[in-house]
Design a protein around this nucleic acid. Structure first.
Length: 935
DNA sequence: CTTTATTCCTAG
DNA sequence: TTAGCTAGGAATAAAG
C-alpha cells in the first residue's frame, strides 16, 4: 500500500479520473513510458560496462546471499593512497557534527572526554572523507565585575568549576574539570550604542558543550567568588550551537571546501578518515574554483508495504515487500544505480537490477548493507523522513534484524528514531520523526516542497504533474497487496511502480535545483546544510551576525524570550476600487526594508537607549530620530552590523547576477542563480529576525522604526507623484494613486497607452527616488492594463513589463484563483471570468459564463465529487478524514458586474473512499442561494 | 437577527 | 529546547 500518499494528503477525485483516461487496463500489454526510459538507461550502461568489463543487471536467484561484490558499481571509486606528509587533502564539506571522545591530538594533558568536531565530505574524485577536528572547545562570555584583574582568574575558575560540579545531579562521566579556562578579553556588547566603550569580558571555556547552560544559569542566579560580593552575571553567546560556534570561529560556511595542508593532519582508517587540529584546517570561501560542487552521491528510495485492506500499514504487522533505490551523482543527468529489492520472485526489468528475497529480514538487512556500500552523501525520497525511514526501522526492530539500524557513515553508531515537535508562527506546529544518520544529509523532497512551495496538493503524483508534467505509474494502492500475492509478473508491475516512485524525487530535485540552491543558501548564510531543513529562519541570521560581530570585537548578549505587544506594520493605501480601462503604472521600492536599514544605519550597535544620548554627550548631528521616536547614531559615529551584513548580501547578489549574465556554462549558471536567490531571501529575513519577539535577539526599536520609515515613505511617494503629475504642471491629467501596499504604489497617470505609462512611470520613479536617502530606490516595475481593483490585497490585471505591445501574463493577487482554500471549480470559474473581463473586455460574457456554470451546478449537471477539495491539503489523512469536508463555491468579481455567494456543504463526510456521487443534501445557505438565483 | 472572535491564507 | 514580521479579506463559529 502506498501509505505515503495518505500521509501527505488525500488523492483528489479529479486526479484519479484523469488517470483512468490515460492508461486504463492495458498496462500489461504495453510497457509504460517509464519502462522505455529505464531500458534506455540500460543501453547507456552497456556501453559503459563494455569499457569497464563489468557484469550487468541480473535477476538474483531467490534466497541467494547478498553480496556487495555482486555489483562493483555500487562502491565508491577506489581511493588513491594518501600520504599526510606529502599530500594536501581537499574536500567539500557537506555535514558537520561533534561527538565526545578522548583528546588524542594535542599532547595537552586532559582527563575525560572533549568535544571533537566531525566534518563529512567528498573529494573531487568522489571519495568520501571523514575529518575529525581536535582542539576546539565551547565558550561564552560574561562582563567582568568591577575591579576584576588577572589575579582573580584562578579563583573564579576554581569556584565556577566546583559550582558546576556540585550542580551536576550525577556525574556519570566522573568529570573533575568542567571549566577549562577563563580569560580576560576586551569586547563590547553589540546591543545598544555606548560610545565604543571597550570593556573587559571574561571568556569562559568549558570542557563540553553541555556544560555551558548550567554554567550560565549558575552565574545568572548569583555567584560568589573571592573578595567579590555575590552578584548576578548576564551572559553572552552562551546560546550558540556548538557547530555554529566552530564554523564561525574557523570561517567555515556550510558546504564550503576544506583544505588540510600536508604535514598538518594524520590518516586513521577508511576512505580518507583523517584527524586535524582545528587551527590547521583551511576553509576556502565559495568563490572562483571553490564554487564547484563535488560529485556527491544522491540516493533516492521508496518502499512498498503489504497493508491490510483499508488499514494504514503498521510496521509491527505489515511486511515491507519492496524497496526501490536510485543513485545519482550530483551534476550527472541519470542515476547510475537503479535497483529494486523484492520479497518473493520478480520478473526482470530491463534497465534495473532486481534482487529477490524469500525472507523479509534478509531483504531489510541487504538493503541496509546496500546503503552502506553505496555510501550516499544525500538521501532523498518522498516523505522518507516521516514514513519510509521510520517504517523500515520499526519493521527491522520487529523482525529483529540486528544489523539494519546502522545507516550512518560512522561505524558502530546505531540509527535511532526520535519524535520532535517544532512550532513556529510561520509553519504552525509540526510533528516530525528524526533519525540520526551521521554523515548523510537527509533531504526529504516533501519537506523541501512544504518549505519552499505553496501548492494545492503535495501528493507525489500531483507534484510530479505540476513540475514535470509526469505522473506515477498507474497502480491503485488498494491492489498492492494483491499484486504481491500474485505471480512474478504482478510483482514486476509493482516493482516498476516502486522504481518510478524512487525516480521521481530525483527528477524533481534536479528540475527544482534543490541541492544547488540549498548549498548556496548554506554557503551564503554559513550554516550546515542540514540546518536548512531542520531549523527555522533565525539561525541563518545569527550565523551571519556572529561572523560580522567577531570582526569588530562585539559579543552577542543572551536575552530571555518574553512576548510583548505587536508593533505597527506597513500601510495599505485605501484602494479606489473599480475597473480601470486605462494603463496603471506600478512603482516599487526595491528591497524596501533592507534599504531602509542601510539608509538609516539601523542596528543593535547603533541603537541609543533611553538617556544614552545625553550621557555620551552626543550632539543632534550624531544621531537620528526615527518615525517611532527611537534614536540611532549615524554611520559617521558608528557603522551598524546589520547594514554591513545587508550591504554584503546585496552587493554579492549584484555580483552573482552580473556573473550569471556572463556565464555560459549552464551548470555554473544554475549555481549562480541559486546564489542570487539565496542572497535575496537572506537580506529580506534580517528585518523579520529583529522583530521576532521570541527570538535570539529581538529589537523592536529596529523593526518598528523600519516599518515606520516605510509608512512615511509610501505616503510621501503618493504625495510626490500626485503633486508633480498634474494638469497645472503641464501634464495631460492629474495623476492619482489608486492603491498601494507596503512598498508599492499603483498610479493612474492619465495617459492612454502602455508605452507612455512606462515612460512616465520610469521618470516618476527616478524623480521620487531622488527625494530619499540611498540606497533607497523607487523603481518602475510594470503597467497593468486593464486593471481590476477589488479590494485591499485583491486585484487582477494584464501585466506589461518587457513589452508595451503584448502583456506578459494575467496577474491575480489574493483572488480565489490563487488561494488554496477553494475548490478548483471556483478557481477555474473565476479565472475564466477574469480572462473574459480583462482580455476580451467582455463583462457581460463573464457574467454569462458564471451564470452558466452556476446553473449547471444547481441542476446537478456538475458532479459534486469534483468539488471535493478541502482546505489544509498538507494535513495528514487521519486528521483529514475526521474533519468534515467543505465544498465551497464562492464567487465574487467586483460588484459592478455581479456578486453572489454560493456556499455549499454536503451532508456526507469525506472518508478515504471515493466520494463519487454524494447525494448531497444541501446546506440551508445553499438552498437560499438557489432561490435567490431563481433559475 | 447582528456583532465579534477565530481560522485560513494571502500580500508584501 | 524551539520558533522571521504585520495587514487584511473572507468564511464561519460563537456570543449577544
Amino acid at each position: 500500500m502506498d501509505a505515503k500518499r495518505r500521509n501527505s494528503g488525500p488523492p483528489r477525485g479529479g486526479a484519479s479520473q484523469a488517470k483512468r483516461g490515460k492508461t486504463g487496463g492495458d498496462w500489461e500489454d504495453s510497457p509504460s513510458i517509464f519502462e522505455e526510459e529505464l531500458a534506455l538507461f540500460e543501453e547507456a550502461d552497456m556501453e559503459a560496462e563494455e569499457r569497464e568489463g563489468q557484469a550487468g543487471h541480473d535477476v538474483i536467484p531467490v534466497g541467494e546471499l547478498f553480496s556487495t561484490d555482486l555489483n562493483p558499481r555500487w562502491r565508491r571509486p577506489q581511493a588513491a593512497p594518501l600520504n599526510p606528509d606529502s599530500d594536501t587533502l581537499v574536500f567539500q564539506q557537506i555535514d558537520l557534527d561533534y561527538y565526545l571522545g578522548k583528546l588524542s591530538w594535542n599532547p595537552e594533558p586532559s582527563q575525560g572526554n572533549v568535544p571533537i568536531i566531525r566534518m563529512f565530505g567528498v573529494t573531487d574524485s568522489g571519495n568520501s572523507v571523514c575529518c575529525h577536528v581536535h582542539g576546539f572547545a565551547p565558550y561564552f562570555y560574561i562582563p567582568a565585575p568591577n575591579g576584576f584583574t588577572s589575579d582573580h582568574l584562578s579563583e573564579f575558575k576554581r569556584e565556577l568549576n566546583s559550582a558546576v560540579l556540585k550542580d551536576m545531579r550525577y556525574n556519570k562521566d566522573n568529570m573533575s574539570v568542567t571549566v577549562l579556562a577563563v580569560d580576560i578579553t576586551h569586547k563590547e556588547s553589540m546591543y545598544g550604542y555606548h560610545g565604543k566603550r571597550i570593556a573587559d569580558f571574561l571568556r569562559i571555556t568549558m570542557a563540553i558543550p553541555r556544560l555551558i547552560a548550567p554554567a550560565k544559569r549558575l552565574l545568572e542566579q548569583g555567584f560568589k567568588f573571592g573578595p567579590f560580593p555575590i552578584q548576578s552575571f548576564s551572559s553572552y553567546e552562551a546560546n550558540i550551537d556548538f557547530e555554529i560556534r566552530f564554523m564561525v570561529d574557523s570561517d567555515v560556511v556550510g558546504c564550503c571546501w576544506i583544505e588540510l595542508p600536508k604535514g598538518k593532519y594524520r590518516v586513521s582508517l577508511c576512505q580518507y578518515e583523517v584527524d586535524v587540529g582545528w587551527t590547521q584546517l583551511i576553509s576556502h570561501p565559495a568563490e572562483g574554483e571553490y564554487q564547484r560542487i563535488a560529485p556527491l552521491r544522491v540516493l533516492s528510495f521508496d518502499i512498498e508495504c503489504a497493508g491490510r485492506k483499508g488499514i494504514f500499514p503498521e510496521a509491527e504487522k505489515d511486511p515491507v515487500i519492496q524497496i526501490a533505490s536510485m543513485v545519482q551523482r550530483q551534476g550527472e543527468k541519470e542515476p547510475f544505480i537503479r535497483t529494486v529489492f523484492t520479497l518473493q520472485s520478480c520478473s526482470s526489468i530491463v534497465g534495473s537490477q532486481v534482487l529477490c528475497f524469500t525472507k523479509e529480514s534478509q531483504l531489510l538487512q541487504s538493503w541496509a548493507e546496500f546503503v552502506r556500500t553505496v555510501d550516499a552523501d544525500i538521501i532523498t525520497g518522498y516523505n522518507i523522513q516521516n514514513f519510509d525511514l521510520p517504517y523500515l526501522l520499526n519493521r527491522a526492530a520487529t523482525l529483529k534484524v540486528k544489523l539494519f539500524p546502522y545507516l550512518g557513515r560512522v561505524l558502530g553508531i546505531k540509527s535511532v528514531l526520535r519524535d520532535s515537535s517544532f512550532q513556529s508562527k510561520q509553519m504552525g506546529r509540526r510533528e516530525n520523526k528524526i533519525l540520526n544518520m551521521e554523515g548523510r544529509v537527509q533531504f526529504d523532497l516533501l519537506q523541501v516542497l512544504l518549505r519552499d512551495y505553496k501548492l494545492r496538493s503535495y501528493t507525489l503524483n500531483a507534484v510530479s504533474f505540476h513540475f514535470l508534467q509526469e505522473q506515477k505509474e498507474d497502480v491503485q494502492h488498494s491492489i498492492i497487496t494483491d499484486l504481491q500475492n500474485g505471480n512474478e509478473q504482478t510483482r514486476r508491475r509493482l516493482a516498476v511502480y516502486c522504481l518510478k516512485d524512487a525516480y521521481l524525487p530525483l527528477r524533481l530535485l534536479q528540475k527544482l535545483m534543490c541541492v544547488i540552491n540549498y548549498m548556496e543558501m548554506a554557503r551564503v548564510t554559513g550554516v550546515p546544510l542540514t540546518y536548512l531543513l531542520s531549523r527555522g529562519q533565525q539561525i541563518k541570521v545569527v550565523s551571519q551576525l556572529l561572523r560580522q560581530a567577531m570582526k569588530q570585537g562585539l559579543v552577542m548578549p543572551v536575552v530571555k524570550p518574553e512576548g510583548g505587544e505587536d508593533y505597527t506594520g506597513a500601510t495599505v493605501i485605501e484602494p479606489e476600487k473599480g475597473y480601470y480601462s486605462v494603463p496603471i503604472a506600478t512603482l516599487d521600492f526595491s528591497s524596501l526594508y533592507p534599504s531602509i536599514m542601510m539608509a538609516h544605519n539601523l542596528c543593535y550597535t547603533t541603537l541609543l537607549q533611553k538617556g544614552s544620548a545625553e550621557k555620551l554627550g552626543l550632539t543632534p548631528e550624531d544621531f537620528i530620530k526615527t518615525p517611532t521616536g527611537d534614536l540611532f547614531v549615524k554611520s559617521s559615529v558608528r557603522k551598524g552590523l546589520l547594514p554591513d551584513i545587508l550591504e554584503d548580501l546585496l552587493s554579492a547578489r549584484k555580483k552573482a547576477k552580473a556573473e550569471l549574465k556572463k556565464e555560459t556554462d549552464p551548470f555554473k549558471k544554475q549555481v549562480l542563480d541559486g546564489r542570487q536567490l539565496a542572497l535575496k531571501i537572506s537580506a529580506n529575513s534580517v528585518y523579520g529576525f529583529t522583530g521576532a519577539q521570541v527570538g535570539k535577539l529581538p529589537c523592536l526599536e529596529i523593526s518598528q522604526s523600519v516599518t515606520g520609515f516605510g509608512r512615511q515613505m509610501i505616503e510621501q511617494t503618493k504625495q510626490l507623484v500626485e503633486s508633480k503629475y498634474t494638469i497645472a504642471n503641464g501634464y495631460q491629467a492629474d495623476a492619482k494613486v489608486i492603491y498601494g501596499d507596503t512598498d508599492s504604489v499603483m498610479v493612474k497617470l492619465g495617459v492612454d497607452t502602455v508605452s507612455r505609462a512606462m515612460e512616465v512611470g520610469r521618470e516618476a520613479a527616478e524623480w521620487v527616488s531622488s527625494h530619499f536617502t540611498p540606497p533607497i530606490k523607487l523603481e518602475f516595475e510594470k503597467v497593468y492594463y486593464p486593471y481590476l481593483l477589488i479590494n485591499k490585497k485583491r486585484y487582477a490585471g494584464l501585466y506589461f513589463s518587457s513589452s508595451a505591445d503584448t502583456h506578459d501574463k494575467m496577474d491575480c493577487k489574493g483572488i480565489e484563483t490563487v488561494r488554496r482554500d477553494n475548490c478548483t471549480l471556483v478557481a477555474n470559474l473565476i479565472n475564466t471570468c477574469l480572462q473574459t473581463i480583462l482580455i476580451d473586455r467582455d463583462p457581460q460574457g463573464a457574467v454569462a459564463h458564471a451564470k452558466e456554470v452556476i446553473s449547471d451546478l444547481l441542476c446537478n449537471r456538475i458532479d459534486i465529487s469534483q468539488l471535493v477539495i478541502t482546505k489544509e491539503l498538507t494535513r495528514t489523512a487521519q486528521e483529514y478524514a475526521a474533519k468534515q469536508a467543505h465544498v465551497e463555491l464562492a464567487e465574487r468579481i467586483q460588484s459592478m458586474f455581479w456578486r453572489t455567494t454560493f456556499p455549499l456543504t454536503p451532508s456526507t463526510t469525506w472518508n478515504n473512499s471515493s466520494p463519487s456521487h454524494c447525494s448531497a443534501s444541501l446546506s440551508p445557505s445553499w438552498e437560499r442561494a438557489k432561490q435567490r438565483a431563481s433559475y
